[in-house]
Amino acid sequence: MECEPLAIQDVKRIIPDILSDERGYFSEMFKLDWFQRTVANVNFVQDNESLSIRAGTVRGLHFQVAPYSQGKLIRCSRGSIYDVAVDLRTDSDTFGQWVSTELSSETGEQIWIPPGFAHGFMTLQPDTIINYKVTAPYSSAHDRGVKWDDPAIGITWPTLERYFLSDKDRKQPPLRELPSPFAD
């Protein structure tokens, strides 16, 4: 496996080694000791999976506040997504900035998003499944979000004919209205 930082150094792309032959392929998707040594010294407590039926489904931008702040390791096991992380750490030089990468079942690449970031994605194909490991359990009392298309953040989402969002995601506040959830 390889690990490469994205434009915001704390967010990392994980590139698996894939061994292929006429039968198919084999790949290690996660190895705790390698991850803790190379990416982040964290422990994962929960695995999640989501299915999005339509291309253009937007989920996010979500995060949780302390004491349930989550780091996330995201992988697309079917289809493809445009995955985004927004830095919400007010003491960071990259506060309010975002990075993105495309994840697909074909490449097996993953993205590590540490606590202090909002996360969201848009499906690029129908019937897309993502799997993600998190460093804290889900807590509805600590669940927060930020507007997916906030012009102050300026995410360049793929242009599709139509976007599909939950009511919850349509009503998220812009970044300027968020209290400072990740200030030291």
Rank of each mutant, 00 (worst) to 15 (best):
C3L: 13
E4I: 13
P5H: 04
P5W: 00
A7D: 03
A7F: 05
I8V: 11
I8D: 04
Q9R: 14
V11P: 01
V11T: 08
R13T: 09
I14H: 05
D17S: 15
I18P: 05
I18E: 10
L19C: 14
D21T: 15
D21H: 15
R23S: 11
F26I: 10
E28W: 08
M29G: 14
F30Y: 11
F30H: 08
D33Q: 10
D33C: 06
D33H: 09
R37E: 13
T38G: 01
V39G: 03
N43I: 01
F44L: 11
Q46W: 02
Q46G: 01
D47K: 04
S50W: 02
L51M: 12
S52L: 02
I53C: 00
I53A: 13
I53F: 03
G56T: 11
T57G: 04
V58R: 02
R59Y: 03
L61A: 01
H62W: 08
H62I: 08
Q64V: 00
A66L: 06
S69W: 00
Q70E: 12
G71F: 03
K72T: 10
S80R: 08
I81V: 15
Y82G: 05
A85F: 03
V86T: 03
L88K: 03
D91H: 00
S92Q: 09
F95A: 10
G96T: 02
Q97C: 09
S100C: 15
L103S: 01
E106Q: 15
T107R: 10
I111G: 01
W112Q: 04
W112Y: 13
W112T: 04
P115H: 13
G116I: 04
A118D: 02
G120M: 04
F121W: 03
M122K: 01
T123P: 07
T123F: 07
P126N: 11
P126V: 14
I129F: 14
I129T: 12
I129P: 06
I130W: 00
I130K: 00
Y132R: 05
K133M: 11
T135D: 12
A136I: 03
P137Q: 10
P137G: 08
A141Q: 06
H142I: 09
H142W: 06
D143F: 10
G145M: 04
K147M: 15
D149S: 05
D149G: 00
D150L: 02
P151F: 12
A152R: 07
I153L: 09
I153C: 06
T156P: 01
W157M: 07
T159G: 15
L160S: 05
E161Y: 00
Y163M: 15
Y163K: 15
Y163N: 15
F164E: 05
D167P: 05
D167H: 10
K168V: 15
K168H: 14
K168A: 14
R170D: 11
Q172W: 00
P173C: 06
P174H: 14
L175D: 00
R176K: 15
E177F: 03
L178H: 07
P179H: 13
F182N: 02
A183N: 11
